[in-house]
Every structure is written in structure tokens, then in C-alpha cells.
């Protein structure tokens, strides 16, 4: 049984043409006659599919092409090449039925009117999306319940905190019960508690309504909590598509050994530790953390146990955000070779 994917990208490409401008009056005058332009490849042939009900983390450093891709999928940008289908539509045709089936939440931008209660803005979206009144009331009350908004929606939006506002924004963008959610940094700038609540909501919502979610976030905790599958793009190209655990396996080159020394501690300076691995603890308390290459982990652990009076020792995978940081830090050429290798 094969399920028809909800989102399909085929070699999607976006090139921006930007004017090249030098400083000075003469350059400005020259540019009036012949504008020099330069092409910037934002998305360079990306392909993937997303099945119904999936929550996919869409990762990449700033400028990787995440937002451009998301905007093409939401119908805001025309691609320069390639094709995409969302819910069976070509997004940039902006078919009204397509638009009724999706929603776009951007953590750094808001659509709710500032001076009036969110409830009034909700009503506006009901009118825009032509949601039948009974259905609207039901969805609205469900969302208010799930996001715990009952005391918030009657206040002018300007009186809400950033997190409360974001919850209202999310509710506003779900009133038409879309089946595809594009969430662009939905937890941006929120405190940890609020991030957790929004995460819990997204998971519950997707389960309850079978909605497909494409999520970008700088907070790896969001991705870890929500997405089994992640898609990583870097410099506009697809770098990885698969399980989160596989991502760590593939890109993490090191592990972390934490150890606690016993009573008789011989004095060891930095250089002495360097024989085992890189010290990454702050040196303040008795816990010592070493980063070691993955391949030599077992050997080093053995040497440590043999030579030092160790009372406790644990080996951990490198935390996910550190892995991602390492992936993102790679220059373009490295990735190309890595891709060739894999």
C-alpha cells in the first residue's frame, strides 16, 4: 500500500537576481543606464516528499534556503526551475482551495491586529476562509481549549506577552482546519516553558487532525521532541533526509566521556588530559568531560579505566545541537565531498 505524498518537491530551484551596487554617485548614475546584476542561488535543486500526518523538521543554518523553500511551498514565491506539488496543487498558482488547505505560521511576524482582541481577528479569518459558522465555533473552542487561551482572547493583543501572542497567532492560523502546516520558527524568542507548551500542542494537533507539519526551528529541542524525520539543507542543497538518530550517527564524529575521579587524585594538567581527548568541562567541579573521536572511544575508555582511579564513567552521544552546529559549520566544498562519499 503506497500512500500518496502530501508534499512533493522535484528538483526545486530558486535564483534571485540582485542588482550589484557600488558606492558613489558615478556608480549610481551608471546603474541607471545598465543595471549590473548578480545571480544568487538560494535553493539549488531540492527534492523530497512528505507523507500525510508526518511531522518533518526542516533544518539549515541562516541563509541555507529554508525560508525560500517554505515560501515556494506556501505559494508565495515562484521557483526558477523544478516543480512542487502540495495537496495536489502547484502552490504558486495560489488556487483558493489549495490556500484553504494550508497555513503558514512565522514566528517573527504577526498577523493579528494589534489593538483589538484576538477573538475579533479570529472572526476575520472565519470570514476570509469562509468557514461555516458552526464549524468555526467548534474549531475555535477546541483551539482555545488546547492552547489554554480562554482568558487571553478577549484582551487587546498588545497587552499579551510574546508567548501568549504566539499562541493566539497559532490558533488564528488553524481556524480553517488546514491539513498542511508550515511552521517557520514558531518558538522564536519564547521562554523554555512556552516553547514546551507549543511543542506539545503541535504534536497533539497533528495527532488529532492527522495534519502534516513542516517545521523549521533553531531550537533543536523542538525538533527532537516533534520530528522523527529531519531534512537538512545547506547552501541551498539537500544534505540529509532521514531519521534524526541517523543524522547524529552520520555526522557526529565524536562522543563525550564524563568521568568522576576517586580519592587519590594525581595532579594532571591540560597537557596530560590531552593525551586522552579534548577537555570540554569548565574545570570547576570534579566532573571531567572529554570529547573523543568516535572510532577510538572504546580504546580510550579502556586506557582511562586502566590508568586513573575512576569512581564513575559514562559515555554519551554528542548532543544534537552540537552535531548540527558542526554540520552547519562546514564550508560548501566539504559538504560536496561528504555527499560524494555517502
Amino acid at each position: 500500500m503506497s500512500i500518496e505524498p502530501v508534499i512533493t518537491l522535484n528538483n526545486l530551484r530558486k535564483v534571485y537576481t540582485v542588482p550589484v551596487r557600488e558606492g558613489g554617485l558615478r556608480a549610481a548614475a551608471r546603474s541607471l543606464i545598465a543595471r549590473e546584476t548578480r545571480d544568487i542561488v538560494a535553493v539549488n535543486g531540492v527534492s523530497f516528499t512528505v507523507a500525510p500526518g508526518e511531522i518533518v523538521g526542516f533544518l539549515g543554518p541562516n541563509g541555507a534556503g529554508k525560508t525560500t523553500t517554505l515560501k515556494m511551498l506556501a505559494g508565495l514565491l515562484h521557483p526558477s526551475d523544478g516543480s512542487a506539488r502540495v495537496l495536489g496543487y502547484e502552490p504558486w498558482q495560489r488556487n483558493h482551495d489549495f490556500l484553504r488547505g494550508i497555513t503558514l505560521v512565522m514566528g517573527n511576524r504577526n498577523q493579528l491586529a494589534w489593538d483589538i482582541p484576538a477573538l475579533d481577528s479570529f472572526d476575520l479569518n472565519r470570514a476570509v476562509y469562509r468557514v461555516p459558522r458552526a464549524q468555526y465555533m467548534r474549531t475555535r473552542d477546541e483551539l482555545i481549549e488546547m492552547l489554554d487561551l480562554s482568558t487571553l482572547v478577549n484582551q487587546p493583543v498588545r497587552n499579551l506577552s510574546l508567548g501568549e501572542r504566539m499562541k493566539c497567532e497559532i490558533a488564528a492560523s488553524l481556524l480553517h482546519s488546514p491539513s498542511v502546516l508550515f511552521l517557520d520558527e514558531p518558538t522564536l524568542g519564547l521562554d523554555v516553558t512556552m516553547q514546551r507548551r507549543i511543542r506539545a500542542f503541535v504534536r497533539a494537533y497533528s495527532q488529532q487532525y492527522g495534519a502534516t507539519v513542516l517545521l523549521t526551528s533553531h531550537y533543536m529541542a523542538d525538533v527532537e521532541a516533534l520530528c522523527k524525520r529531519v531534512i537538512v539543507i545547506h547552501h541551498g542543497a539537500l544534505l540529509f533526509d532521514g531519521d534524526l538518530t541517523a543524522l547524529v550517527d552520520r555526522f557526529s564524529s565524536s562522543k563525550t566521556i564524563s568521568l568522576q575521579l576517586g580519592e587519590a587524585v594525581p595532579h594532571m594538567d591540560q597537557a596530560a588530559w590531552a593525551a586522552f581527548g579534548e577537555r570540554i568541562d569548565d574545570g570547576e567541579d570534579s566532573l571531567i568531560r572529554l570529547r573523543v573521536p568516535k572510532a577510538q572511544c572504546a580504546a580510550i575508555t579502556g586506557r582511562l579505566l586502566a590508568t586513573l582511579p575512576i569512581s564513575d564513567l559514562t559515555v554519551e552521544e554528542t548532543p544534537i545541537d552540537q552535531v548540527i552546529e558542526e554540520v552547519f559549520a562546514q564550508p560548501q566544498t566539504d559538504i560536496a565531498t561528504q555527499e560524494a562519499r555517502t
Binding site: H96, R109, Q111, V128, Y129, R130
Partner: peptide, 18 residues
């Protein structure tokens, strides 16, 4: 300026009217 026109353009209604 602020990029919030994106919200309008993803609405199923004639954008000029909106």
C-alpha cells in the same frame, strides 16, 4: 516592508480586495 504581506497572499481571497 515587514514581510507580513505574506499572510495576506496565503489567504483564499483576492489579494487586491483584502
Amino acid at each position: 516592508h515587514k514581510g507580513t504581506l505574506d499572510f495576506t497572499l496565503t489567504k483564499p481571497e483576492d489579494a487586491q480586495l483584502l
